[in-house]
Amino acid sequence: MKFNQDEFLICAITSLLSNSRHVAVGMASAIPGSASLLAREERRGQRNSLRVSMIGGDTNNPFTDGGRELFDCSGQGRIDTFFLGGVQIDGGGNVNLVGTGKYPKLDRRFPGSFGSAYMYFVIPKVILFRPEHTRRVFVPKVDFISAPGTSEEGVYRPGGPYALVSELCLMMFDRQRRRFRLKSIHPGHTLEEVQDNTGFSFDVPNTICKTTVPNEKRLELLRKRISPEIATIYPKFAAKAFKEPI
């Protein structure tokens, strides 16, 4: 069965959620949102069922105490998985959502840090998702730290980076070594290509796996069940994402 790039990335993220119990999805997160709904659908009725809470939209938004409730229940440890993007991400897992250049007079201003400066500290598994895999995104050092990848000893920090998903590969974050470790490369891409397009150094295992491609059952579920659901929050995305197989 053919699939397109968005579908591939959705399924790659779904595979990372197998041990999660409660995933929260923030703003501007169409692909992570689709992946979370897909993971929930696959485990529906099973003992390890998955709870998905999405803000921005009503369908999967369980919160009744205003904007603060997502953050309050994250601080209590009720949510174990969350997603962040990044204008820049560096090898220490530091995330920049603010812009490039010297703050505050930036060369290019982006929206801002959202909840990252808090969520990265309190959510055990934060999956970094940034499709564009280039040296302008994956930099040696971010220009502005919206949220640091690791903290000094003594700082309250149950949370932090878990994995990094791009259009080229999947990396896992090693908290002890404070570095990323390559886990798998997406079909059609090479280690050389990943190294050429990454501005920071990362660990490379002896054997490198290929990222698993989505199977038919998963794709069907995604197109039939998840696509209309995600369209209620991200109509523009849903209109193009589930249309053109490559």
Binding site: G66, G67, R68, F71, D72, G75, V98, P104, K105, L106, D107, R108, R109, F110, G112, S113, F114, G115, S116, A117, Y118, S146
Partner: peptide, 22 residues
């Protein structure tokens, strides 16, 4: 917004969601 902040004509105080709620 982006242009005004890049040019420095509007001051923007970066915060984070739960800090504003708190």
């Amino acid at each position: 917004f982006s242009e005004a902040v890049q040019k420095g004509t509007t001051e923007f105080r970066d915060s984070t969601c739960p800090a504003i709620h708190a």
